[in-house]
Design a binder for these strands. Structure first.
Lengths: 192, 192
DNA sequence: CGGGACACTTAACCTACATTAAGTTTTTGC
DNA sequence: GCAAAAACTTAATGTAGGTTAAGTGTCCCG
């Protein structure tokens, strides 16, 4: 297993000594996921934050009619998880699964709390991560509340051009909050 | 001006020495807002995080038809701001204003960055704040994508019982993502 | 290389919620 | 204390997007 992508991600915001790096690595776990395999199911308690090393993961909720609603996609270099479940260590409402064969690096929440004490720089790293995440969710909510579906689609294409190539259309439909049928209709009626 | 509420808020997650407290307080600014007065307008660069000491603030976006969409309410003891604008120090998309006469304590982003270096405990405090915020936005998005309006209203009442008392109905309508007319109709057709 | 799952499309019909507009009640500022 | 603004209601009409269903294409994997 290879931690280079994760270490590069960490190095964007904090600088570690070799010793700190080694300690950090000693706390990491690796999991390989087959396409469609779950990392987390509704009702599970999230173990801790997960970093995508290869593949693509997504988190989603399931409504009472059985429809999926994608909350986040995570290509390589991204973090994913059910934050409410992780913080409170309570059963969560989200599913996390792999859209293709993937490799995930993750850390137990308890080990992360230890890491924060041993190497306080990591407080900074995860603060910055969480702040960026807040900014993303704020703007997602703004888009959702104030733009029609076609503009949310255009926004997604602009913001994640590489994901558009890789994802099945129905996953994108779910992310922007419409049915696959409606997205298909939109795309065939509209010149973007 | 009185920092007790803010210091109590900080003390929930980290413990400060008197000296650290004094330094923190030395960085704080206070602003009194009249009802309807803006703390931030679209296009402004957010100065830094703001803590509500009294009153109620809200953040919202304005769509191209002139409709407001409430992103967050902040009663006393809550933090509010346009996170994307604050992080990138770029003009933002959100308005922040006071729904009643209010008092806000805020800190310049540059001073906050200094504080993180001088008193690293604050990294932890703001990490926890941001993580809780992520959890809230995740669950808000789940609700928005998977529940009908009447259940989002019921959820709001359950989660923020004290706010329901104080807020005009049209503000709640905007938060749950419907028009005031539709919320009015729902409430008069439905026994909750 | 064949069959079954999965992705995408089309189309008819449906509904939750928006828009517009007018009227009533409550709050606010001077 | 009164006029004006803001909040709330009601109702007729409109529409973005959902639902259902059937058909076509495609890609696995055995």
């Amino acid at each position: 297993m290879n931690h280079d992508l994760l270490l590069a991600n960490v190095a964007k915001h904090i600088t570690l000594t070799d010793e700190e790096k080694a300690y950090f690595i000693s706390l990491l776990n690796v999991k390989k996921l087959r396409k469609k395999q779950y990392l987390n199911q509704e009702g599970d308690i999230a173990k801790g934050p997960s970093f995508v090393n290869s593949g693509i993961l997504r988190s989603y909720s399931l409504d009472k009619n059985g429809y999926e609603h994608v909350i986040q996609f995570a290509p390589p270099g991204w973090w994913i998880g059910d934050m409410a479940s992780m913080i409170k260590q309570e059963p969560g409402k989200l599913y996390v699964d792999a859209l293709e064969d993937s490799e995930v690096i993750w850390i137990w929440k308890a080990d992360l709390d230890k890491l924060f004490v041993e190497v306080p720089k990591f407080e900074r790293f995860f603060r910055i991560l969480a702040e960026n995440s807040v900014a993303t969710y704020q703007s997602r909510l703004v888009n959702y509340l104030s733009l029609p579906a076609i503009e949310r689609y255009a926004g997604f294409c602009k913001q994640y051009p590489s994901l558009i190539q890789k994802l099945p259309q129905k996953q994108v439909a779910s992310y922007i909050g419409v049915t696959p049928e409606f997205l298909s209709k939109m795309l065939n009626n509209t010149v973007i």
